[in-house]
Design a protein around this nucleic acid. Structure first.
Length: 588
RNA sequence: GGGGUCGUAGUUCAGUUGGUUAGAACGUCGGCCUGUCACGCCGAAGGUCGCGAGUUCGAGUCUCGUCGGCCCCGCCA
């Protein structure tokens, strides 16, 4: 196909080019055929330029232009011209000019697309995903991917400037237990053996510290074979960071510097440093989440003291069993109807709560189905503790510490929505959550699991507790939270092989098992491991938030559906018997 | 593994207590139109109501199953 190389993109012509002869290439965004004159909006990723076909200017081009339809790929040659004054289009950067065409080449025709290529379309996401190449033509998607590109560049530049080395780590690695399910890759050369795709480059980056690279980063894909969410895909991108001879504060300093840059360059906002910090316990008891959204107040209140001697059996039992009674004050919601309250009760029950206690605060006291169970002193103490006034609504949930707080945390977010507390223009909330527990008890398997991962260092002063009260040991672990989303998490690692052995022991991992699964890492540590620590960012999630989107799919070029399917290329798919045979695999 | 919700024209949706020929807008196609930019006007085509059973004289509508999308819980070191 003969066509002239473009002289300009569709986004760059301005009044200064009037009179110049230009060649533009692009897609037909829309056509307006007025009979005697045809207007085409020509589109590429740089913008839109209106090109005009007039029979008086060139009859042949005008005749051919009648055939043009949406998404045809064309090349036009003509003269830049100023528009008549009353036909300027202030909505387009190129709206002061148009191009009068005397030569049109149709480079490719296009069938009618299944949905219109424009912003603010209302199309089901599955259709967009099936025709992703059309969806990606929309300026909103182009904007998102260009933002993503910008963030890559800022991140790379920042770490480079701070002496970090970018190192690629393997995509085919050893399957490690503890944590998410691995995606497995069968080995053809080694019958019955499998590689795993990395859930994270964790072990490699620690080994790079042993190897003396001192400061490492990588922007890399990770894979986890778990169920999906709006902010979780089976393959996703992580900014992986590790540093030697550091403590928590050093990691924070580097990360805060990056966030300051991103806030400035993406949002043009000055981020104030140092970032606020909350301990895990505080975050849970005040906000019912380890990734609290602090764009609004609405704090939860611990009520164990208020009901310490309560006659109310539910509270009684909770306190006896070491649980928590947590309250939430919904300002001015005292007029909620029984029906609204039933909906909210249902909401918490679905999350596993036994029930939801609510009380309307009146001038003359508390109005609630359970009011009769409480003494006047308790009621007064409750009102005082909650800082409640007439016209308010109090919610109370009691139960096992983690569960009750998590459910109340969800109710907190739900109420924030209902009370419209998250304003469109609210300042973003970025903070550290620190002092996570090192271990988490699992009822099902009756053992402790590492909350972060088994290489996470406990706080030095808590090490003696590892034997006596493992659940109380705090980790040198931290999460970075933006607007209620965990965007990064990391820790200072164990670099001492004795402490690491202790950790495995607490986790119920035998010496033999540890040797088999993590022997290579333990072995490396024998040859001089520096103290080290690091962090990993959920890159997609971070870009999602910077883009103001609600799903990471909006900032990924080719995401999967929530059932893990790729609708465009129809994967996963079956494979041939020959392929299976080569891989020594028999389906059952 | 569990819960919720949705599935009707190419697209987004409406469709009443189960009842005549399943509608609208946008898009598409054709005609007219020389300054439009949500072009306008006239006309037309376009439907396996996701799929499969069942109930019924009669099912887009009710029941069961199944497939798929989205959201959430579990899960995600």
């Amino acid at each position: 196909m003969q066509f002239k190389r473009r002289t300009h993109t569709c986004g760059e012509l301005r009044e200064s080019k009037i009179g110049e002869r230009v060649v533009l290439n692009g897609w037909v965004d829309s056509r307006r055929d007025l009979g005697g004159v045809i207007f085409i909006d020509l589109r590429d990723r740089y913008g839109i330029t209106q090109v005009v076909f007039e029979p008086a200017f060139n009859k042949e081009a005008h005749e051919l232009a009648k055939k043009l339809r949406s998404e045809f790929v064309i090349s036009v040659e003509g003269v830049v011209r100023n528009r008549p004054e009353d036909t300027l289009n202030p909505n387009l950067p190129t709206g002061m000019i148009d191009v009068k065409v005397d030569k049109l080449i149709i480079l490719n025709e296009a069938v009618t697309p299944p949905f219109q290529i424009k912003d603010n379309i209302d199309v089901n996401e599955d259709l967009r995903l099936k025709y992703r190449y059309l969806d990606l033509r929309r300026s909103k998607m182009q904007k998102n991917l260009l933002l993503r590109h910008k963030v890559y560049q800022i991140v790379r530049r920042y770490f480079d400037e701070n002496n970090f080395v970018e190192v690629e780590t393997p995509m085919l690695m050893k399957s490690t237990p503890e944590g998410a399910r691995d995606f497995l890759v069968p080995s053809r050369l080694h019958k019955g053996k499998f590689y795993a795709l990395p859930q994270s480059p964790q072990t490699y980056k620690q080994i790079l510290m042993v190897a003396g690279y001192d400061r490492y980063f990588q922007i890399t894909k990770c894979f986890r074979d778990e169920d999906l969410r709006a902010d979780r895909q089976p393959e996703f991108t992580q900014i992986d960071v590790e540093m030697s001879f550091v403590d928590v504060e050093d990691v924070f300093e580097i990360v805060e510097g990056l966030m300051k840059k991103l806030f400035k360059e993406v949002w043009n906002k000055e981020l104030e440093l140092p970032l606020p910090r909350l301990s895990f316990n505080e975050a849970m008891e005040k906000y019912g989440s380890d990734k609290p959204d602090l764009r609004f107040e609405l704090e939860m209140v611990k009520l164990n003291d208020v009901f310490a001697n309560s006659e109310f059996r539910v509270f009684n039992n909770t306190i006896e069993e070491g649980g928590i009674i947590t309250g939430l004050l919904a300002k001015g919601c005292g007029d909620y109807t029984r029906n609204q309250l039933d909906v909210l009760t249902n909401f918490v029950k679905k999350l596993g709560a036994g029930g939801l206690i609510w009380m309307r605060v009146r001038e003359d006291g508390l109005e609630a189905p359970v009011a009769k169970f409480f003494s006047e002193e308790e009621k007064q103490a409750l009102i005082k503790q909650m800082n409640a006034e007439a016209g308010d609504l109090i919610f109370i949930i009691s139960g096992q510490w983690n569960k009750a707080l998590t459910i109340m945390g969800n109710l907190r977010l739900e109420m924030a929505k209902r009370m419209n507390l998250i304003k469109e223009d609210a300042e973003p909330s970025l903070l550290w959550v620190t002092d996570f527990p090192l271990l988490e008890w699992d009822d099902e398997t009756q053992r402790f699991y590492a909350m972060h991962h088994p290489f996470t260092s406990p706080r030095v002063e808590d090490i003696p507790l590892m034997d006596s009260e493992p659940a109380k040991v705090r980790a040198r672990a931290y999460d970075l939270v933006l607007n209620g989303n965990e965007i990064a998490g990391g820790s200072i690692r164990i670099h001492d092989s004795k402490l690491q052995s202790k950790m495995f022991e607490v986790l119920g991992i035998s010496k033999e098992e540890a040797e088999e699964k993590f022997g290579f890492l333990m072995n490396a540590f024998k040859y001089g491991a520096p103290p080290h620590g690091g962090i990993a960012f959920g890159f997609d999630r971070m870009v999602m938030l910077f883009a103001g989107e609600n799903s990471i799919r909006e900032v990924m070029a080719f995401p999967k559906t929530s059932s893990g399917l790729s609708l465009m290329d129809d994967s996963p798919s079956t494979v041939s018997e020959e392929q299976l045979k080569e891989l020594h695999i028999k389906l059952r």
